[in-house]
Structure formats: structure tokens, C-alpha cells
Write a protein that binds this DNA or RNA. Structure first.
Lengths: 244, 244
DNA sequence: GTACAGTTACTGACCAGACAGTAACACCGC
DNA sequence: GCGGTGTTACTGTCTGGTCAGTAACTGTAC
């Protein structure tokens, strides 16, 4: 993990603009020319500022999407102009990449500090992640919005999402190799890994859209168990959908 | 199906502008004032024109997303200006709704003509749909892009997607009631239905991003069978993820 | 600790491009 | 001539990005 000591979700500050040092700016933000009545006080460290921006961007990209989420919107959340944001990140696209890397550390399927669990423990970890995510809507929303958009032509997050999926599938396949042994046919292992990721994302999506109708952790657990059992049954499993 | 006799995916015409009547316009489109050298020939019927537009919009919203896909882009595909498109649909949002309704008819999970299958047949139908979808990338792409975007604030497709999910869950729950009987606890039935939809969407997403790595029909079949078996096992199924 | 120099953070003003939507007008077939 | 279809031309708005200038900070020398 990192500096991110505070709020586990992304900040719900924003009204208060910043949380940290005592004397910050006044900066009415709406008021047009806040030029001279600026700052007056300790400037926050650069890494701190950058992280603030990334967090705001994650929030904005999550709620509005990458295309519609504007730098102006993001900048306003951290009390600066969009030119200030560009000073730090150079371009909107670079900011998106920074968000993706940040999200990856502060982990969706990864876990902080500890090493990646193996075998059955990986599945247990996936379930626990789903349970945690139910309390971190912002994180899930950011991830879902960006992943969803990434299927469009030339989207800057596209390659990131693709390699993320590839890596996750590999991870799950490895776990299945440990659980089911090497005799499980490769294609079944791949189908199972694909299904695991698919179901996690798909259930999250439904949950985001209708939290009352979907129990994120329990639906996820059900699906994970189902897939796990099917994989363990290997080639000998029942085939109710085989056409006659 | 419908008029869409030609190319199975969505049109790759566009150069030819229209497929139907013999003598169409020349309309260089790039050339600034194509005003007077227009059309010259049987004008297409309004419903026909509208459908052309909707199909173009589906394509554009699929490849670029709703936010980034512009009316200008859509209009160009059917050989008119964006004002012409607005004449037919009034607003971009209304056009999106039209696309969603059209997609619903020309069916992703629904099937044209026949009545909705019940029980196990529904699952078989879902599998067949996945197999068909593997040949209809455009359709899947449109659906995925719009669904993905719909999680953002105030997105015009949001309520549509929500009610679609709700309806699908209900449908699958009904099928499970037939298959597993009324003794299956309600929550398990719901989890299973949620999982089915989730896995179908999630696998489609991975497939769109990496067609070589994902076998859409077979991964879907694997997951559907797994979920089905787990549901049939009801409360008595193995619980490998139960924490000790 | 003050003076100076250099660096970094950020603003305000501006730009070109794109966008959805509107209004007035032209064409077409009936 | 009339209604529907479509165009041209335009509007207002918003966007990401550039740039010069400035305030704030840092390091060094004395």
C-alpha cells in the first residue's frame, strides 16, 4: 500500500477540498478570478498533490466515464485549474494511465503487502475481495466504467485492460493446476479461468446498477464454488447442455 | 430477422451508402456543397431511412461509445448531415433509445418469432446465443459498450439496462424453478440467475478484447453447466469456500 | 538570516476543434 | 401548394492543450 492512510473508498471529502494540513487556501473555487487570493500557506508536497489528483480523477472517471469526465471537473475537486493538472500529468491520457496504475496497487484483485495466494486460497481471496468490494463502491465503479469503455476503438485503457485480463487468467489457471492437478485438460482450465473473471466482473456490474437486487459477495461465492466444483469434476462432469 | 439480408455483421457498406434501390445518389460527401447534385432517384421510405440510421448509430455507439460517437459520424454513414439525423430522431439521446429498442428486437438474448423457451431449454438457448454471438461481433460490441457506459451518472441507457437485467434475472429464475423445483432456496436461485447473466456478459467482454484467448461459446457453456449443476445440487452442494 | 539564483507549481488567457441543437430555406413527390 | 425530408449555416458550449507570467519554495554563499 502507500500513503493512502485515510478513507478506504476514495475520498468523500471534496466539499472540504483537502484534508491534510491546517492552513490551506480559501479559494472559493466558484468565484471566477481567485488569482491573488491564492494559496498563502504551506504548499503540499508534489507526490501528495499528484495522489490527490489521481484520486479525484479515479472518482470522476468512475462517475462520468473517461470521455465525459473532464480535466476541469477533476481540477476543481483538488482546488486548481485544469492547466495545473496538466502540469502534473502532461495529458488526460497520461492521467488515466496513472489512475489505472494506482488502482492496481490499491488493489482490486491484488492484495497489499502479502504475496499472491495459491491454489484454493486464491479462490478464497477472490471471494473475500468481492466481499470487500461491496464496501468500496467507488473502486468498483471506477474499474467497471473504465473497463466498459475500453472495448471502444483506440481507447487508452484498452491494452491495460487486456493485459490485466491475461494476467488474471494465468493466475487462476495456475491455481486450478494446483487444485485439480495437471490432468485437467487445458481448455477446461482456461474456460474456468475465463468464467471466474467474467462472473466477477459481470456480477459487479449488475450490483452497481441495482444494489438491492444483487448480493455481490454471495452471488460471487455461489458462482466461484460452482465453477470450482465443475473444474474439479474435470472431464467427468455432467454435461446438461450437450445437444443430442 | 429483417431487412438486414446482406452482411451478417452490421453493414460494411458505407462506401456504397445504400444497398437497396438501383439508382442512388453520387454525393461525394466530402465535397463541400453537394446541395443541388443530390439524390436524383427514388427516395427511400421514412421507416427504411430511420432503420438505416439506427443501424449506423448502433455501429458507431459500439465502436466509439455513446459519448464519443458523434451524430456527424452516424450521419455520414447513411449519406446525410447530422441535422438530417436530428430531423428523424430529435436528439442524440432519443437515437440511443431507438438503438436499444432495435437491438432488443433483433435480439441478443431474445429470439425472433419463437416464444421464450422454458426450463432447461432456456439454458440451451443461452448457450446457442453465445455461439451465434461469436459470429456477430458488432452486435456484442454495441451491447458491451453501451452496457459498460451505462454505469456512469445519468447515462441515458441506464434505466434501460437496469430493467433488462431485472427481466433477464426473472426469466432465468423461472427456468430454475422449473428445473430445480420450488425447494431450491430463493437466494440461491437469485445468485444463480445473477451469475448466469454475469458470466455471459463478462466472458463476452473478455472475448471482445482478446478473441484468441477466449472461446466465447465454450467458455460460456462451461460456466452455464457449472452454475446449472450447482443450482441443481441446491443447498446440498459442496462449499469449498466456506471459511473455517 | 539574508540575498540571490534557480526550480517547481500553478494561474489566466487563449486556442483550435468538436459537438448537439436550431432555424431558415430548398427540394421532392403527391 | 403542401408536408415531409433534408441542407446550409449558424449558435453556444465545452474540450484538451499551450504558453507566458508569477508565486512559492529550495539551495547556496556569505
Amino acid at each position: 500500500m502507500q500513503t493512502n492512510a485515510g478513507s478506504d473508498n476514495f475520498d468523500r471529502s471534496k466539499g472540504a477540498v483537502d484534508t491534510a494540513p491546517a492552513h490551506s487556501e480559501v479559494n472559493t473555487m466558484a468565484g471566477g478570478s481567485a488569482s491573488t487570493l491564492r494559496v498563502r500557506g504551506a504548499r503540499k508536497s508534489t507526490p501528495e498533490r499528484r495522489q490527490e489528483i489521481v484520486r479525484a480523477a479515479a472518482k470522476t472517471f468512475g462517475t462520468k466515464g473517461y470521455q465525459k469526465g473532464s480535466l476541469i471537473d477533476i481540477a476543481a475537486q483538488v482546488g486548481m485549474t485544469h492547466a495545473g493538472v496538466l502540469h502534473h500529468f502532461g495529458s488526460k491520457e497520461a492521467l488515466l494511465i496513472a489512475v489505472l496504475e494506482y488502482r492496481d496497487e490499491e488493489g482490486l484483485e491484488t492484495l497489499s503487502g502479502q504475496t499472491m495466494p495459491l491454489g484454493l486460497d486464491l479462490f478464497l481471496h477472490l471471494y473475500r475481495t468481492a466481499a470487500e468490494n461491496a464496501k468500496r463502491e467507488g473502486l468498483v465503479q471506477t474499474y467497471a466504467a473504465i473497463t466498459g469503455e475500453s472495448v471502444t476503438e483506440g481507447h487508452p485503457a484498452r491494452s491495460f485492460v487486456i493485459s490485466r485480463f491475461t494476467a488474471l487468467r494465468g493466475l487462476i489457471e495456475d491455481a486450478l493446476r494446483l487444485i485439480c492437478g495437471p490432468d485437467l485438460p487445458d481448455d477446461i482450465r482456461t474456460h474456468a479461468a475465463t468464467s471466474v473473471i467474467g462472473v466477477m466482473d459481470g456480477v459487479q456490474l449488475q450490483w452497481l446498477l441495482d444494489k438491492e437486487a444483487v448480493d455481490l459477495p454471495e452471488a460471487t461465492r455461489f458462482a466461484l464454488e460452482a465453477i470450482l466444483v465443475a473444474a474439479m469434476a474435470g472431464t467427468k462432469r455432467p454435461r446438461p447442455l450437450t445437444e443430442t
